[in-house]
């Protein structure tokens, strides 16, 4: 056996056991439940907050489209909204996107931002017109979330909206829109729109763009140039 230069530390003792969860906060059978059972929990008025939270998570893992209406009903719940989105985000059925889009006109504050984030994650192009309005609205937290979602959707149309708004924006919002532009450019290039993506990077290289994003855009142009290895 090879010896180290200095002596070894003592091994760590096993960590103490955590407190026991009470019976009403134990997931139990919900972890294995099918879609019908989950919908029943989510639509039963006497179901607890905990039961609904776990049912949402399980619905997301199953991508249970049957649960969409019940999940959508929880999007305005302060505690359960994140769980509802946990359920809705993986559901590829169009009804999940429809439910999230419908919530855009009903929610406010952080709940609304959460839904915007989920639509961005799903690259929901149908929500772009509403997101553009939000990006240009007075609520700066919402504007930043909308910009991020638009960047994630990432097509030529939203790139124009992002650039137009970025030129008017300031501070953290300008930074968020610049970030969204970088993401948008990546998405366009990945989707085969290389020239459009490079044009967006070129626009982001302007001195008025926040420094971190500007440098990122310049680096991306160099990487793209190298990647195609043209003879010089």
């Amino acid at each position: 056996m090879q010896q180290p230069i200095t002596p070894a530390p003592k091994p760590q003792a096993a960590k103490p056991k955590p407190p026991e969860p009470p019976p009403h906060f134990q997931e139990g059978a919900i972890a294995k439940m099918d879609a019908a059972g989950l919908v029943k929990i989510l639509t039963t008025p006497s179901s607890s907050e905990f039961q609904k939270a776990k049912a949402c998570m399980r619905a997301g893992e199953l991508a249970a489209k049957e649960a969409v209406p019940a999940l959508a009903a929880l999007l305005d719940d302060e505690h359960l909204s994140v769980y509802a989105r946990y359920g809705l985000e993986p559901i590829t059925d169009p009804s999940a996107g429809d439910a999230l889009r419908a919530a855009l006109t009903k929610l406010k504050g952080d709940r609304l931002i959460g839904v915007v984030n989920s639509l961005g994650k799903r690259r929901d192009a149908k929500s772009a017109p509403t997101l553009v309005k939000m990006m240009n609205g007075a609520d700066q937290d919402l504007a930043r979330a909308a910009a991020a979602a638009l960047g994630s959707i990432g097509n030529e149309a939203v790139s124009k909206d992002l650039l137009a708004t970025m030129n008017k924006a300031t501070g953290l919002t300008k930074m968020a829109i610049a970030d969204a532009c970088l993401v948008c450019a990546e998405r366009m290039i990945a989707d085969g729109k290389r020239e459009q993506g490079l044009a967006l990077y070129a626009t982001l290289s302007a001195p008025s763009v926040p420094k971190a994003a500007r440098l990122g855009a310049m680096q991306a142009i160099i990487s793209q140039e190298i990647s195609i290895a043209r003879p010089r």
Binding site: G60, E61, L62, A63, S81, V82, Y83, R85, Y86, E89, P90, D110, R111, I113, G114, N117, S118, G120, K121, D141, A145, A148
Partner: peptide, 17 residues
């Protein structure tokens, strides 16, 4: 496994992303 693919991400609590 479709279920495994659905578990590749977790929703983040609002307003985080």
């Amino acid at each position: 496994s479709d279920i495994a693919n659905n578990m590749r991400s977790r929703a983040l609590r609002e307003p985080w992303r």
